[in-house]
C-alpha cells in the first residue's frame, strides 16, 4: 500500500443473491485513492462502479449482498470487517457520499438546517442551535445565496441544483477526507452541472479532501479527475492518469468509448460504435468479458481471464494481447 493512499481496496469481489445463487457484481477490484486526489471512475451501467463505491461504506443491504473476497483499508483498519459501530463513525465522518438524485436523497419533512446538522450533532455532539449556525456557514460554503432564510426551508422549495448543493453541504459538514460523488450531476441540466462541478473542484481545493467521482460521462471525468479507472462488466479494464488515458487509451473498450464520443463532431457521419451490449453479471463468458464485443479478439482472450498488467508507470491495462505487446519485458 503506497504511503499516501487514503483508502486502499484490494482484490474486492462483491456478490449479490439472485434466483440462481450468488452472482459477482464486481470482481478483483484493486485500487488506491490517494489523499487529496480526484479519482475518476467511469463505466456504463452494470460496470460495477456504484457497487464499488457503496462497498467502501458497506452500504449494501445485508443478506442480499456480500463481500466474498478482498479488503478495504482505511487508517490500517479493514472496513469490510470493522464492527458496525466503528463504521458509523466513518460514514459521514472520514468518508462522505453524494448521490445522483438529490430529489430522493433529502427528507421532505425536515428543514434544510436539520438535515445538514444531523451528522454534526451525531459526530461532534453539537446542540441544535449550534448545528443551525454551522448549517448556515455550510450553505454559504456551497454558494447558496440568502443562507439564513434557506436553512429554515424544506427541500421542495429548492430547485434540483440547489438540492444537490445541500447534499454536498451535508456531505462536507464533518470535513471528510474522502468524498464519494456517485453521478452527482447526471440528473441536472448542463449549465447547472457545470456549476456543481466547479463547486466540487473549489471545495476539494479549499478543504483538501480526496474526491472519488463516479460517472458514465467521459466528459465529466476528463474535466474533473487526476487519475481515471475504467470499469467494464464488474472489472477494472484500465487505469491511468487522465492525460494518458485520453491521449493514449490502450484497452479496446476505452478506445471504443472515445471513438464513439469524438466522432460526434462531424455532422452526418456515422458514429464509431461498439457492437453488442454489456453482458449480464451472471452471463458466463470464457476469458475476457469484453471479448464478444472486441474487434481485436484473439484465441488467447478466450483462453483465460486477462490480468491487470502495468504497461508503464501508473498505467495498467487488462487486455492480454495489448499488455504482451506493451508491457516492459520482465527480466
Amino acid at each position: 500500500m503506497p504511503a499516501d493512499a487514503l483508502v486502499s481496496i484490494r482484490d474486492l469481489t462483491v456478490q449479490f443473491r439472485t434466483d440462481r445463487g450468488w452472482v459477482s457484481a464486481i470482481e478483483d477490484i484493486s485500487l488506491d485513492i490517494n489523499a487529496g486526489e480526484c479519482l475518476g471512475v467511469v463505466g456504463e451501467s452494470g460496470s460495477g462502479k456504484s457497487v464499488t463505491a457503496l462497498s467502501i461504506l458497506r452500504l449494501h443491504a445485508r443478506g442480499t449482498a456480500r463481500a466474498a473476497r478482498g479488503s478495504i483499508m482505511l487508517d490500517g483498519r479493514d472496513l469490510l470487517r470493522a464492527p458496525e459501530r466503528d463504521l458509523r463513525r466513518v460514514r459521514g465522518g472520514d468518508i462522505a457520499m453524494v448521490f445522483q438524485d438529490p430529489m430522493s436523497s433529502l427528507n421532505p419533512v425536515l428543514t434544510i438546517a436539520d438535515q445538514i446538522s444531523e451528522s454534526l450533532r451525531l459526530h461532534q455532539g453539537l446542540s441544535r442551535a449550534e448545528g443551525r449556525s454551522r448549517a448556515i456557514e455550510l450553505l454559504d460554503l456551497v454558494r447558496i445565496a440568502d443562507a439564513p432564510r434557506r436553512a429554515d426551508e424544506y427541500p421542495h422549495r429548492l430547485s434540483g441544483g440547489m438540492r444537490q448543493r445541500v447534499m454536498i453541504a451535508i456531505a462536507i459538514a464533518c470535513r471528510p477526507r474522502l468524498l464519494i460523488a456517485d453521478e452527482p450531476t447526471t440528473a441536472l441540466d448542463v449549465t447547472i452541472q457545470a456549476q456543481i462541478l466547479e463547486l466540487l473542484r473549489d471545495l476539494r481545493a479549499e478543504l483538501g479532501m480526496a474526491v472519488m467521482m463516479i460517472s458514465h460521462d467521459l466528459g465529466v471525468i476528463a474535466e474533473f479527475a487526476h487519475r481515471v479507472v475504467v470499469m467494464y462488466a464488474g472489472r477494472i479494464v484500465e487505469q491511468a492518469p487522465v492525460g494518458t488515458l485520453f491521449s493514449a487509451p490502450r484497452h479496446p473498450y476505452t478506445e471504443g468509448l472515445m471513438t464513439s464520443l469524438r466522432g460526434r463532431d462531424i455532422p452526418g457521419q456515422r458514429l464509431g460504435s461498439i457492437p453488442g451490449r454489456v453482458p449480464d453479471p451472471d452471463e458466463s463468458i470464457p476469458g475476457c468479458r469484453f471479448g464478444p464485443r472486441c474487434a481485436h479478439v484473439e484465441a488467447v482472450c478466450r483462453a483465460a481471464v486477462p490480468a491487470l498488467v502495468s504497461i508503464s508507470e501508473n498505467h495498467d491495462v487488462r487486455c492480454t494481447p495489448r499488455s504482451q505487446a506493451l508491457a516492459p519485458a520482465c527480466l
Binding site: T191, Q193, A194, G219, A222, E223, A225, V242, G243, L261
Partner: peptide, 19 residues
C-alpha cells in the same frame, strides 16, 4: 461551454450563474 468534453487539456470557460 457548459458541455463537458472528453478532453482533459481544454481550458474550461466560466460557467453562467443562476438557473
Amino acid at each position: 461551454d457548459a458541455m463537458p468534453r472528453p478532453d482533459p487539456t481544454r481550458i474550461r470557460p466560466r460557467t453562467i450563474p443562476g438557473e
